[in-house]
Design a protein around this nucleic acid. Structure first.
Lengths: 233, 233
DNA sequence: GAGTGGTCTAGACCACGTC
DNA sequence: ACGTGGTCTAGACCACTCA
């Protein structure tokens, strides 16, 4: 399995990682400088730099000018959860995706929402209830509020065929968002939509989205019972 | 706010990102080649490469040899959830952390566990029940099984003062893991430990960990009612 | 086959942080 | 002040992938 002739940054990265895992460089230890490592591996310093930078990104080491590179003691692992468009999530399970708009109304933002999004009282919002199905079984119930002022076009958009999330992604693709995961019991309404008994525990994902500081939308996505988020690291 | 005199990869990265967000390069569009961008920005190709590589890592663009760099159509957002040691999580909330070992026993792995971890029948495992408190209120209930063969020392470790997770991190710090988040209802046992009514929805985090391919431990961490995972992107 | 990103090099200067 | 990582350059060759 000897791929390259020259010393690649992969080789350096993997070897350094190996030494950390083998405790040759124990937790908290100071690694040799980039120049020293470059000499040892017989490569340019830039190559070592690239390798160590990746390890730093992955949380294995901590780098500081002048101080040098240290093995992290309590590596904070990041569990990356992919938040894709629902349709994509469903289709990745080889299931047939179906979307339905349940309810649509325009009103003044309720008090809790103005505080949640930091809106002025009396702001007009679009309120939506939607269902997402996988193979015609309930997959996710979506309740969403959209700040019409930030995306005026949404008021006259046809949301019966395309879900609001996909519509928004298409209109304002890159934004800041804050997400929370929690566990809730289904109430009567949720039970109806998710076709489950009242009081079933389900995962609820809430997301608030901003576009350049302006609040755009707040959404609650409630998944069908048994749904899990999976990830590795 | 003009920091550098020379063109930095930050500048290139931010400008490219800006153009994507401003739809100057709409979704699916092909970006200029690295060489062309380097010319435009008046910098070396390596600088452009670094910038585009970061944007690719962040999921804004997709790069392929020969084809070039394209703006991603459905940017898969990654919600990074930090999985730290419980103690750290608690202390970050400015709460006093307390740990208690509830039960400890050694036995043969039950059938479901051998299948979960890919163990041989009859493998000896350490089974632990632990509680983690924040300001003396239940924070997390932990039920864990450890494959003794992979970490023999654990059998004689004192786990009454240090939690098994911290002990393991200290003994075998870097490993592969698979995590799932789900919502469950508290049963009688969980309700007792978490001081809540039976049937309360709570978040359960399950993690299986391997050390160089060998299964080390499987753990179920059940959080107190109302606990949320928060993140941004 | 040819175009595009992937990577390496050798050298240089810069910036941050510690002494 | 000075040491260490951070970054840029100019040029080179490689490797993947599409036509």
């Amino acid at each position: 399995m000897q791929t390259p002739k020259r010393t690649t940054f992969h080789a350096v990265r993997d070897e350094v990682k190996r030494r950390i895992e083998a405790r040759i460089w124990p937790q908290g230890a100071l690694l040799p400088t980039e120049t020293e490592l470059a000499e040892e591996f017989g490569c340019a310093r830039a190559t070592v730099n690239r390798a160590l930078r990746e390890l730093a990104d992955q949380g294995f080491v901590e780098r500081r000018r002048k101080s040098g590179t240290r093995v992290k003691t309590a590596p904070v692992k990041h569990a990356k959860i992919e938040i894709a468009v629902v349709r994509q999530t469903v289709e990745e399970q080889n299931a047939v995706y179906r979307y339905a708009l349940v309810e649509r109304s325009v009103s003044e933002a309720p008090a809790w929402l103005t505080s949640q999004l930091g809106l002025k009282a009396g702001t007009r919002v679009l309120h939506l209830l939607c269902m997402h199905y996988a193979d015609n079984r309930p997959f996710q119930f979506e309740e969403r509020w959209i700040n019409i002022a930030t995306v005026p076009d949404i008021e006259h958009a046809d949301l019966t065929t395309v879900g609001p999330n996909e519509w928004l992604l298409n209109a304002v693709p890159f934004t800041d968002a804050e997400i929370t995961f929690s566990a809730v019991s289904t109430d009567t309404k949720l039970s109806d939509f998710l076709a489950t008994a009242v009081g079933t525990p389900v995962i609820q994902l809430e997301r608030t989205t901003w576009l350049q500081g302006e609040p755009v939308t707040y959404v609650r996505m409630t998944h069908h019972p048994g749904y899990r988020f999976r990830t590795q690291y």
